[in-house]
């Protein structure tokens, strides 16, 4: 059994109102049928452009948004139907690290109190034990334990991100959802945080859901990668398969759009530049939602892409990798 299993998850947000108390004028389909599995100790990458729904998936998993439909199971237990009180023990098991280390720490709390708060909420230990735990956590993330009485503004961006990581570790979770944990950091600091996340994973057997738009970072840290486009998953594969042999035209375009820090390669390689923008999730295109931008659409006969949404399925020949595309795979 998977540690976490998400099946056909939908999250639709109401937009506008018809009349004062009327029904919503439209539904924004942020997550539109996502299925994923996460094993203990693994890192699953969730990539896609802004607005593709990757952060919404994370928020539904962790219970910050309720699901519109579909299921989220943690060790076989359905989470979407739990009451607030029933949720509490599962919150301990799943923690989150946020993108912006400046906005995700309370500026009026000391580091000691930031790190002890999760323990206090879950009524773990006495105040003295919590203080000791805070010191232990600071050491685990490579910060000076003597700085435990400082405030967030006294730390740099990279150090604050370490505090955010320490806070996520406080309750000894099984899963940490990292929502763009390094994209606000400078390159030299980014590498430090990635190495720290990898070290902590090994030490505490953590499973990560790693949400990012930087595919080079994802390739470095993830074992499996799911690519999202407009609320749906278009491809899931093991890291080397996905990067070595991308099967979905959108994955190919994403990989091709990344600039390489290698001037010779940059000047010579062929690049797929996608036309246009990501369509609005308020009014997604018919059929495959990628079809208006897809460079390979002409290869599918009868304009099937515009009519019929492809399902996320394995190849006819089997194998673990999944893809949602009408293109012939042979």
């Amino acid at each position: 059994m998977s540690l976490l299993a998400i099946t056909d998850l939908h999250k639709h947000f109401p937009v506008g109102k018809e009349g004062l108390f009327g029904r919503p004028a439209a539904w924004l389909r942020a997550v539109d049928g996502v299925s994923l599995e996460l094993e203990r100790g693994e890192t699953l990458g969730l990539v896609g452009e802004s607005g593709c729904g990757k952060s919404t998936v994370a928020r539904v998993i962790i219970g910050l948004h309720s699901a519109t439909s579909g299921s989220v199971r943690y060790e076989g237990v359905e989470l979407t139907t739990l009451t607030r009180r029933e949720w509490i023990p599962y919150r301990r098991k799943m923690q989150m690290i946020f993108q912006d280390p400046y906005a995700s720490l309370d500026p009026r709390q000391t580091v000691a109190s930031i790190l002890a708060e999760p323990l206090a909420i879950h009524k773990l230990g006495r105040p003295r034990d919590r203080r000791l735990r805070a010191i232990e956590l600071l050491e685990a993330v490579g910060l000076n334990p003597r700085h435990v009485h400082r405030y967030p503004h006294e730390f740099s961006g990279g150090q604050r991100q370490r505090i955010g990581i320490a806070r996520a570790l406080a309750l000894e979770p099984d899963i940490i959802i990292c929502d763009e944990p390094v994209s606000a950091l400078d390159v030299s600091i980014q590498a430090q945080i990635i190495n720290l996340l990898e070290e902590l994973q090994e030490r505490f057997q953590l499973a990560y859901i790693f949400i990012a738009h930087d595919l080079a970072v994802v390739r470095h840290i993830c074992q499996r990668v799911a690519v999202m486009y407009l609320g749906r998953i278009v491809e899931v594969a093991a890291r080397d398969e996905l990067f070595g042999d991308p099967r979905h035209p959108y994955t190919r375009a994403l990989l091709s759009a990344i600039p390489h820090p290698d001037p010779e390669l940059e000047r010579t390689r062929e690049r797929v530049v996608l036309a246009g923008d990501v369509p609005s999730p308020l009014d997604p295109p018919s059929g495959c939602s990628f079809h208006p931008r897809c460079p390979e659409r002409a290869e599918v006969p009868d304009d099937r892409c515009a009519r019929e949404a492809p399902a996320l399925v394995a190849r006819a020949t089997g194998g673990a990798r999944l893809r949602a595309c009408h293109l012939d795979e042979s």
């Binding site: 390159v187 030299s188 980014q190 590498a191 080079a216 970072v217 470095h220």
Partner: peptide, 17 residues
């Protein structure tokens, strides 16, 4: 320190301390 699409993904990233 920048991971790239052709660097060894299993090697530890170089960091500037």
């Amino acid at each position: 320190s920048v991971p790239t699409l052709d660097s060894d993904p299993d090697a530890e990233l170089y960091t500037i301390p």
